[in-house]
Design a protein around this nucleic acid. Sequence first.
DNA 1: ATGAAAGCGCTAACAT
DNA 2: ATGTTAGCGCTTTCAT
Lengths: 343, 343
Amino acid sequence: MTSPGRTRAAGRPTLEQVAAEAGVSRGTVSRVVNGSLEVSTNTLHAVREAIEKLGYVPNQAARNLVTKRTDTVLLVVSEAEERVFGEPFFAGLVRGLGEELARTNLQLSLMLAGSDRQRERVERFARDGRVDGAVLISLHGADPLPGKLVAADIPVVLTGRPLSSESGMPFVDADNLSGAEAATDHLFRIGCRRIATITGPQDMAAGVDRLAGYRAALEFRRGGTGLVAHGDFGRASGERAMRELLERDDTIDGVFAASDLMAAGAMRVLREHGRRVPDDVAVVGFDDSDVARNTDPAMTSVSQPVRRMGNELARLLVTRIEQPDSVPGPVILPTGLVHRDSA
Amino acid sequence: MTSPGRTRAAGRPTLEQVAAEAGVSRGTVSRVVNGSLEVSTNTLHAVREAIEKLGYVPNQAARNLVTKRTDTVLLVVSEAEERVFGEPFFAGLVRGLGEELARTNLQLSLMLAGSDRQRERVERFARDGRVDGAVLISLHGADPLPGKLVAADIPVVLTGRPLSSESGMPFVDADNLSGAEAATDHLFRIGCRRIATITGPQDMAAGVDRLAGYRAALEFRRGGTGLVAHGDFGRASGERAMRELLERDDTIDGVFAASDLMAAGAMRVLREHGRRVPDDVAVVGFDDSDVARNTDPAMTSVSQPVRRMGNELARLLVTRIEQPDSVPGPVILPTGLVHRDSA
DNA sequence: ATGAAAGCGCTAACAT
DNA sequence: ATGTTAGCGCTTTCAT
């Protein structure tokens, strides 16, 4: 009880103790731990043995204090829990990030920022100096978070083109415009002439760009582009939008939805209304997620290389961290169209 | 360039500078920052002003070094990315955890441990002294991670009863047995007499207990309990299991699946085989997730209070952190049956 | 190749 | 109520 350690990390051996055990100085142990080459084989072994014997693990706080690095990067997702854990998009991204970061000694840590309160916490966490950099994803409109982090001198990379392009922050995005264009054009080519779209949120570039792609395709084909209903990428919004569209025009024969979830919702509503997919109405989604594979009929969908996007994000961030003055340009990755049975 | 700061956190004002600016000592500033009451109103104001003026933010590394606390707790999910971001179960849990932790000054950080490599990283991270405690979820079989963390003197709480109950670690779980029993009994009461089950992984208590519940219900009703096929909670495994079951016995008229995802897979296979749900075969799932609400017909499912489970996990962990010697007992929360159209 | 020593920025115990 | 001081455990010059 009165022993020298009531504190949590008590008893943990220190550099000092390892040094004593190995009969060398602190500095030498430090060199061994950090893989310096300027250590003789003999001492190297002695120190290693001592480390092993004592079960020494470097104290990060002490190390951070002097190096100013934390070897941790933060993934901030600006969505509510339900969204984050419902959208398969994030899975690929996280995997991609993890893969790439595994090559470095950076550890990935994830935090949600779906509410103001959470955003504030994330900001404080980052400003406290607990991370070397941050990847932000799913930013809406004029989220102040990226700006605040940059102001706090924290390297930041974004997922998805920021709406206000003045930001100048490096970002990675899928070619949403081309993807949407290809999807819409596909509907046209299989014979649809009354093609509607269900958009994503218009405060995100992904939402805006996919709508633009739809428009571009139809303008090129000289089709009408008026059948637009807005959604928020979520399933329920897709159902709502589809109902609205059907009410406005019941001759619709093709639908391009800006997310698989919305497309799935639309398919359900179409069925409720007695429309067969794809015979009466063809449907294309966006994301090529699990959802698309599991609708009935299986859904044709635009694929984005989420995993590669994660890879690129990691690379960009590492670059920013290692060369704070570099401003790597944006990375735009190509999308594809995966043909299944719904269109 | 030769200025005193090329390092990342360079130029950040320190306690010392704030003290100078406010004309007081370091100690006093520290007291203000940490909310000590023993400070006169005057100096309090002076210090606050100085902090404001200089934009001072305490350096966490320095603070951690002396306090031995990080104010961070880790949520470790022992699943692959695809799983984590596909199962809505996690959303509720994370939300519950966040809610409760928001009352404290603990920050939640999430890490995946789906591969050995990731598990190793997580272990190192925790042993490095970067977290005050950890919540582990989705443990399989004899995962060594919890033991290692405990050995490293890190407070740990588990989600789901550990299979080897000798561990003695505090945990939170849903009453899986009762839930499964209620689901199965419901099938019996609506007239099913050939009731099959699709189990979860048998290296997790949730899988084992739900199967036990199925058995208990049928034994009580004197029904046969032989129609068992194994799955892993995932959709594909549900499809596989359903096919297998139909091959073995095509008079099956009720199915209890240990997860919504598997139940959804089963429903699809049933439809493929020309069985109508619930008319020919009634189906009950487990989780009461979004998936259950979106099948056609909507799925009857066992609900677990995931959010409350998250709350309780946080409470347990906080207790463990604040009183390292306390060993709070397990918390088992009740499940319910949500009636929809599939049974 | 190695040791010695000067901090990194903060908290907390002790004085006053 | 406030100042003083001794570290927390580590990295990193600077000598040798």
